[in-house]
Structure formats: C-alpha cells, structure tokens
Design a protein around this nucleic acid. Sequence first.
DNA 1: TCGTTATCGGTATTCAAGTAGCGATATGAA
DNA 2: TTCATATCGCTACTTGAATACCGATAACGA
Lengths: 237, 237
Amino acid sequence: MKIFIIFYRYPRCTFNRPCGILARAMENPKENPLPLPTIRRYPIFLRAIGEMMDAGEAFISSSVLAERLGLDPVLTRKDLAMAGVPGRPRRGYPAEELRAAINRALGWDSATDAVLVGAGSLGSALLGYAGFKEQNLSIVAAFDANPRLAGSTVHGVKVRPLAEMARLVRRLKVHLAILTVPTAAAQACAETLVEAGVRGILNFSSAQLSVPEGVIVQNVDLAQPLAVLSHAIARHG
Amino acid sequence: MKIFIIFYRYPRCTFNRPCGILARAMENPKENPLPLPTIRRYPIFLRAIGEMMDAGEAFISSSVLAERLGLDPVLTRKDLAMAGVPGRPRRGYPAEELRAAINRALGWDSATDAVLVGAGSLGSALLGYAGFKEQNLSIVAAFDANPRLAGSTVHGVKVRPLAEMARLVRRLKVHLAILTVPTAAAQACAETLVEAGVRGILNFSSAQLSVPEGVIVQNVDLAQPLAVLSHAIARHG
DNA sequence: TCGTTATCGGTATTCAAGTAGCGATATGAA
DNA sequence: TTCATATCGCTACTTGAATACCGATAACGA
C-alpha cells in the first residue's frame, strides 16, 4: 500500500527565456543526448522538411509536419525542440535552420566516406540506394571475396578484391563500413576493418559481432520488421 | 514534493504453480500480447536456437542464450517466458518446444505466401534473401511496372507486369505484400493490393501509406539505422 | 544419500519514452 | 488599434520496458 502526499506548485511558464529541453539543446548542440526514438524519426522529418521547402515553405510548424507523417503533434514538437532551434508562435520553425540543425545532430552536416564489404545482391542494392546521398554519405569503395565479382563496376562503384581492403581503408582514412557479407565471414571482415581504422559498422549480416570498445556496431535485421508484421497479422487479422 | 509511505510485504515465490507471465502465455497462446521489443528479438533467438539444436543441444538455458547474443540473462528469460513454455531448473527450456512456441507466437508456424512489388535492385535482393525461407515465407509472385523487367526471372521467381497484379493476388489469395517500388508509386500500389485482399504490407519505400483500418503497414527505413550509427559516431567518436 | 548450485519464475523498482494540459506570445483578422 | 487564435515550450503525469532481487527447485557431484 502506498500513500502519496503531494504538495503541488502550479507550473510556471517561461516562454521568453528557454530553460528546458530547448535551452539544453541550444547550449551544447554536439553533446546533446537525443532519445533513440527521436534519432530514428529524424530521417523521416528531414525528408518531409525537404519536400515542404521544395514546395516553397519557409517555416515548418509541428502540427503540419505531424499531420503529414501521421504522428502526434506534441511528440513532433518535442523532437524538434531537441534540435535546438527556437520556433515562433503561429509560424513554426525556420525551415532552413531546422534542417541544418537536425543534420548536424545526426552528424550528416559534413560529407562522410564509407566502404561497402560484400557486393552480393543486397550489397549491390545498397550501392544503388539513393537515400545515402541525401545523408551526405558516399561509398568510395566496394569489396568482395568472390574473384569473379572483383573488377566489375556496380552502380558506378568499382568492386575490388578483399585482399586490398585493409590497405585502401587505411589509405583513404574511412571510418564507416557497411557489411553485407555472409554471416560466416562477418566477424573476420569486421576485425580487418577495425584494424584498418573503421569506427562504425552497419551490419546487415546476422552475426553477433564482437568488436573492441569504442567501435560502434549497428545491426540491421530484415527479419525484425517481418516479425512485427506477421505477429500483428496473426493477432488482429 | 512527494512523500511515500510504503507498507512492504515480502514477495512470495510461487514456483510450482505458474501465475504470472508464463501462466498467461500458456493459457491463451494466440491472444497473448507480446511487447514490441520482445517480438523484435524473437527472430534472433530463433536463429541462435536453431544453431544450438544443430550442435546437438536438446535444452536451451537463458544464460547460455543471453551470453551468445550479448543480452541480459534476465531479459532473455522474460522474453522466453512470454512464449509460454515452462523451463526446468539447471537445464533450461526444451529446445524443440521452445522454437515451435516462438514460431507460433510470430505466426511463422504455417507457410505464408507473399508477393513482391517492384523488382528493382532492392526488390531483386529481397527475392534472393535466404532469411525469408527460415520464416516459412514464400514469395509466390513478383511484379514490376517496367515492361523490360517483366518476363525475366529473378532468383527463381518470374517477374510479371503490374497490370496482372490485382487479378493474380486475388486468385492466389495472398494476404502479405513486400513493397519495393519508388516512393511516388507506393500509395497507388498499396491501394491496388489492399483492394485485392492484402492485409499486411512491408513497406520499403519512404512514402507514408494511408490504408483502411484493419490493414497493417510495417515501414522499413534504411536511413534509420544509419542515423543511429552516425549520431553515435558523432557523439562518441 | 545429501549438500551444492545453476537456473527458473515471481514481485518490486527504476528508467525512458510518450501523453496531457496549459501559460505565453506573435501573427493575422476585424 | 484591438482581439482572437494557432503554435510554441514548459511541467507534470502515465505507460511500457528494462533491471534488480530473491525464493523454489531439480540436476549434479561428493
């Protein structure tokens, strides 16, 4: 049994001088810790903001953005506040600044080089994925263990033999790798990449990579969204 | 200010007669509401369980499974309890039953037919994705608007013109579709599919689909994991 | 046979994310 | 000029998931 005794003080609004989320985001934009779900929504926001800017909008209001994306306006507003750009009543957020701030928060403000390892069917598809360009990500090299693939060109990127990977990654100072090799080969590739200076790996294989501290692995598992979908169908369908 | 006064009663363990999560999962396995994160972890569990069974294990303990996947043992145990299979002290869970229960929870216990719409580079890659077979999912037809692609065969599946889609989906009674068309074409395709009887859509385009109630859309956005990764690198790297 | 112990399964707590409600304000209309 | 209102940004609350902790039990070794 719990007894709550609450002394309640009426909330005081401080609209004119930011002191909450917004203030923290404005003060140190680089070290601002974003909630994971917010980070995941940012790319969607960026796309919508871009489209609205193309349509001539100079200001983006959270309600309009939320409507467009099927989200809650309050949630959207909180996400945008995290970017650290103040908005204006009855107008919204300045579109250009907002986009720049979100890009900065995601580390997409400056061009990033990446390599792709494993030019099979999934790897080839990713080489042609237009979305990477939106995110200032350019795939500067691709590698594959299959000697027959090596030498070919896929979507404008030359595929090289795996043996050249370590040297080239080191020479180009690439810090990000996209891993689309078979599960059995993933760990070995990851180790070579880390050794050559890679600090972030987007892992499409189903291997559980073990990497030294400081290296960040983000797993992408196509089975996960399928699991969510088929569970939902099995229950509600 | 809050003051909590708590009268504390010592927890009573009822090991021998299930009365918590496990009991609820055992009673009505079909209507058991699984937490979303649990559903997302299930495919990973299934893979690991399969490998351990191939290695001759008849029992799976939560600690071993957790160690293998880099997860917390308690979290793993709770996930497994959700499946509704009781475990045994010092042994673990019966592997075969556990796998069957998880498959049942995800709706992967019986074979499911699906169609793929959009046989571009990503679509072709998915046609070759081996993971779908593990999940009892078979892609029975593929469609594309490009007349040059129509007629070709990709990874053993014949690509047909988009005009045949509605009729064929209806005739084969397919309820699940994988949508890999360009964003501009996505909404129109979705409407045709729903009209033809599809109840679940795995949407790889970046369009925000609007569908009638009862139809479930699961979006897959390759930009999301990249956002998480690059944000992490920007902050910690 | 009997103690040891790895593992299960329960309750309680903590933490993170989403939701609710509202005062403050600038814009646009009357 | 004045008023109505859409929208911001704050605090507080609710919900859901992860974590902590521990009694009960069956397998195993001595």
